[in-house]
Write a protein that binds this DNA or RNA. Structure first.
Length: 356
DNA sequence: AAGGCGGGGTG
DNA sequence: CACCCAGCCTT
């Protein structure tokens, strides 16, 4: 029995029971696949359940507003996934009569669906013979076949896709794809792979040469930028001044507070002297309360965040600023750090800002 | 081809 | 602390 078929047999005996494995509904599979992009199963699972309950069909999804989608997406990260899903759902509603495509050719055209997701949906929903290549598959193939070509170089991506196509079981591609990924997630893990109980270790090049820790090879790590955020809390206890984030920065489409970003972190008493702050609040700004610094770590950015509550009201309003009733705050999608701060400040129940 | 995009888990 | 996670889009 070859390598791939051994994995399928292992999968039959050891697979986790996950809700999206009980359906061939392309919409439901799409939902799960996009949620799981760059996201662990355990983290994505509750979001999948909430989304499916809120939007049982792609037309239900398409009829939602972007605010509603982002609110439900709150805390999951990579929010462009949610925004792209809405575009795709509306296109499926309007151009495909609400029938979600299940062929690779059609799927690859849709916003937010790349090679991996198109292969996943078409193989799971329609048993189309397309090999998925995700982080798990890169790792399994690199180790088993002892390939040290970087997985994120153009040459490497092509090579691994070809190899995945070669080993693909064309009779049951969906099962094969699931098995490859499940095996990578459960046995052939990034760190401390479970080689001791691995059924293919005798054929594994990395195991034979003791190279599992060296593979797969990946080029260059992301450099982390430091940014300094000064957030202004302006509230009378009934309303609060909020900001809708636009453009190409982080958290596009989500809501935070009036913000002045600075190249370094000013002392609290220096905030008043910042030109941008003077522009917003006039020459004399009254700081009512300064809160402790918070660090917020993203994959590619390190945010040093200071919140200050001010008495003064702005004399200059950005177009994206608006007052909202505190009771309506729970409808807005908030970045994690804003969510935590507001929950703590207003002494909301732990989850009252989470749902709409 | 390279850079940007969240938040959480792991060792 | 570094690395990784059922990747994709823009430039």
């Amino acid at each position: 029995m070859n390598f791939a078929n051994q994995l399928v047999q292992w999968y039959h005996e050891n697979k986790r029971d996950l809700p999206w494995r009980h359906t061939t509904n392309a919409y439901i599979i799409w939902l799960s696949e996009v949620i799981l992009q760059q996201t662990r199963v355990e983290q994505g699972l509750p979001y999948f359940n909430r989304f499916l309950a809120a939007y049982p069909t792609v037309t239900d999804f398409a009829n939602a507003s972007e605010d509603e989608i982002l609110k439900l997406w709150q805390g999951l990260g990579y929010y462009s996934r949610g925004r792209n899903m809405l575009k795709t759902a509306r296109l499926v509603r309007d151009e495909y009569k609400g029938n979600f495509p299940d062929t690779y050719q059609e799927l690859i055209k849709l916003k937010g669906i790349g090679e991996y997701t198109a292969a996943a949906i078409s193989s799971f929903a329609a048993n189309e013979a397309r090999a998925v290549v995700d982080g798990n598959v890169y790792r399994v193939l690199a180790r088993y076949f002892g390939i040290d070509e970087p997985i994120n170089s153009t040459k490497g991506k092509k090579l691994f896709q070809q190899l995945a196509d070669e080993v693909l079981n064309k009779e049951q591609p969906g099962l094969h794809n699931q098995a490859m990924m499940e095996f990578g997630a459960v046995i052939c893990k990034p760190k401390n792979p479970a080689c001791g109980i691995c059924m293919v270790r005798l054929g594994c090049e990395a195991f034979k040469t003791n190279a599992t820790t060296q593979l797969p090879v990946k080029l260059k790590t992301v450099k982390v930028k430091e940014r300094f955020f000064n957030y202004f809390l302006i509230t009378d206890g009934n309303r609060i001044l909020m900001n809708k984030r636009t453009g190409n920065d982080i958290w596009t489409g989500l809501y935070d507070l009036p913000l002045v970003e600075t190249p370094t972190l000013p002392e609290t008493h220096e905030i008043v002297t910042l030109p941008q702050v003077k522009a917003y609040f006039g020459p004399k700004l009254e700081i009512e309360e300064a809160f402790g610094l918070q660090k917020h770590v993203l994959t590619h950015q390190r945010l040093i965040v200071r919140f200050v509550k001010v008495k003064s009201k702005p004399v200059l309003f950005e177009p994206d600023w608006f007052y909202v009733d505190i009771e309506k705050l729970h409808k807005l999608a908030l970045p994690k750090i804003i969510f935590k701060f507001l929950t703590n400040f207003f002494k909301f129940e732990n989850n009252s800002l989470f749902s709409n």
